[in-house]
């Protein structure tokens, strides 16, 4: 490990430690609720970008994994201990990601996008059907002792974990392989890379994170029904935030999550009926105006500055 790496690791650890004290601030109610949503989107968008950033495979299925995790908790709460439920949710996410990945990742990216596009809707239909026919109720109640503070700490821990995983992957052969796959899959095969396996591993990682986030968030809903946790808007927001920040750097999505989550709080409060339209408009603006995200813009500007000073 180089000195620079040790320094940034220490800094990151200090930042996380500092953030962990946030719930102890006086009158932290509103701040905490905003922080929970920022932390949640950070984990979701960063783990999304771990897979989609290097491979350019756009997953539109975050909500499917999130909902799955939330449902595992809703179904098992009371009968199974909460930490075990989190592990179960992660496992369920991994199994779903494996199933989707094995079917689609050996083919071109379009099949994958299509498959993930309707996945949340599919699971929603199936869950609704199961509930209507087998349990006879539309939703489920989640009553726990878990407060918002605990949820916040859990999410903070997950965020630290996601960064750690991302950092480890980037240093590894796997990270290098993904980088090559994203550039040219034919070359990747010709230097001996197993593209399908590399993509699958990353997709499973991002699926597990999304499922665990859903499980962590479940107690916050108290009442869970398919249309709430399998909302396509969630998948959409995650993609927007990651793209806004920049999906090609580990810390890129964070740059998008913070302003967007804050802006979103505002929009949801002011224009509750037009959220879908505004989401769409925001998304189009990002795709057209800042295709490489804010981070890409900054890097580009820095690069030009460096060249400029060198010449001058």
């Amino acid at each position: 490990m180089s000195r620079a790496e040790i320094r940034s690791l220490t800094l990151a650890a200090a930042a996380f430690a500092l953030l962990a004290f946030l719930p102890f601030l006086k009158d932290s109610g509103y701040l905490l609720s905003v922080s929970v949503s920022i932390a949640m989107y950070t984990v979701l968008a960063t783990s999304w970008a771990l897979f989609s950033g290097p491979t350019h495979y756009i997953s539109l299925a975050t909500a499917a994994f999130y909902g799955l995790g939330a449902y595992v908790v809703a179904a098992g709460i009371g009968a199974i201990s909460y930490p075990l439920l989190l592990a179960l949710a992660g496992t369920a996410g991994a199994v779903l990601a494996l199933a989707v990945g094995v079917t689609t990742l050996r083919l071109t990216g379009v099949y994958f996008v299509i498959f993930t596009l309707g996945l949340a809707e599919l699971i929603r239909q199936v869950v609704t059907w199961v509930q209507n026919n087998l349990t006879g109720s539309r939703g489920m109640y989640v009553f726990t002792e878990i407060t918002e503070r605990i949820i916040y700490w859990e999410l903070l821990g997950l965020a630290a974990l996601v960064y750690l995983v991302g950092w480890l992957v980037a240093r590894s052969r796997l990270g290098f392989a993904l980088h090559i796959i994203g550039n040219d899959e034919l070359v990747a095969a010709h230097v001996g890379i197993n593209s399908a396996a590399a993509k699958l591993i990353l997709f499973v990682i991002s699926g597990v994170f999304a499922a665990v986030v859903g499980a962590v968030m479940a107690p916050r809903y108290t009442y869970i029904e398919p249309s709430i946790v399998y909302s396509p808007e969630l998948s959409f927001q995650v993609v927007i935030m990651a793209l806004l920040g920049g999906a090609h750097r580990l810390w890129g999505p964070l740059v998008g999550v913070i302003p967007f989550a804050l802006l979103w709080e505002l929009i949801a409060a002011r224009f509750p009926t037009q959220t879908v339209l505004l989401l769409g408009v925001a998304f189009l603006l990002i795709v057209y105006l800042i295709p490489h995200g804010v981070v890409g813009r900054i890097e580009f500007a820095l690069e030009r500055l460096r060249w400029g000073t060198r010449r001058g």
Partner: peptide, 10 residues
């Protein structure tokens, strides 16, 4: 890095 790609996975 382009050249390393050959050495790492071959």
């Amino acid at each position: 890095e382009n050249v390393m790609a050959g050495a790492v996975f071959g």
